[in-house]
Design a protein around this nucleic acid. Sequence first.
DNA 1: AGGTAAACCTGGACGC
DNA 2: TGCGTCCAGGTTTACC
Length: 280
Amino acid sequence: MPELPEVETTRNGLAPHLIGARINKILLRRPNLRWPIPVEIQTLNGQFITAITRRAKYLLMHTDAGSALWHLGMSGSLRVLDADVQPREHDHVDWQLDSGKILRFYDPRRFGCLMFQAPDTMHPLLAALGPEPLTELSSEHASPNLPEFTADYLYERSRGRSQVVKSFLMDQATVVGVGNIYVAESLFQARVKPQRAAGSLNRSECTRLVNAIQGILRHAIARGGTTLRDFINPDGAPGYFEQELFVYGREGEPCKVCGQPIKAAKLGPRQSLYCGKCQR
DNA sequence: AGGTAAACCTGGACGC
DNA sequence: TGCGTCCAGGTTTACC
């Protein structure tokens, strides 16, 4: 489901409810999501949540005794509810808080995860991630020696790569947070065809791509993310960015810039939407 | 080492 | 109405 803007929207919605709250009980309705939920997660019982941060598409909830590391996968969502709200099917995890609220994780496809990160360590899942695209939102959990996400960085990193630029940008080792929606929108705005080889990008195209990725992610965050199917923020509101999509989900519809029908191609296993006239 | 395919899951949309 | 097929916002793992 969620790309960086949806995870950031979730973080923004959760923070006022969670920061300073005490975790009274962690209820697991099943032992595993994508992976087994480690028993150490119960270390967080009785702890106070001191901060909630995001690294790539992961959310981290911190306490003095360690941190919870969440990923929402394709269909996961986190909401804060009154404690008497009955769980639905696929409501897999509840945290009961001293405020009388519960933090509830819902994830039908179970591609999400809940892991434990010990104090002053970095979970292996975070180790190979590339730079954050938005410097103003870069978390302190990124390795200090990561490069900045700039046109120079993108240009140098793409040299010699035969991989299509769309897959290259979705690779979380290149830049984090960009998934299938926002890569399509960014490539459109930068006027770059998704099937181009990454190594064929010139400096000016790298500049356009960095600007497009940053601008679109910022704009989507300001809109509360994109709601397709069932994304809602922790307070139950949808995102409003889908009204501003130029190519994603618009196969056959006229390009909002030139009027040509939007095309679809399979790149790797995934659908890629683009305009054959505007993107070169 | 880089690149690709398969794997993990469920639910909804579609065609017959 | 029912069943089979395909598709979906992600990422790891196993292979060439």
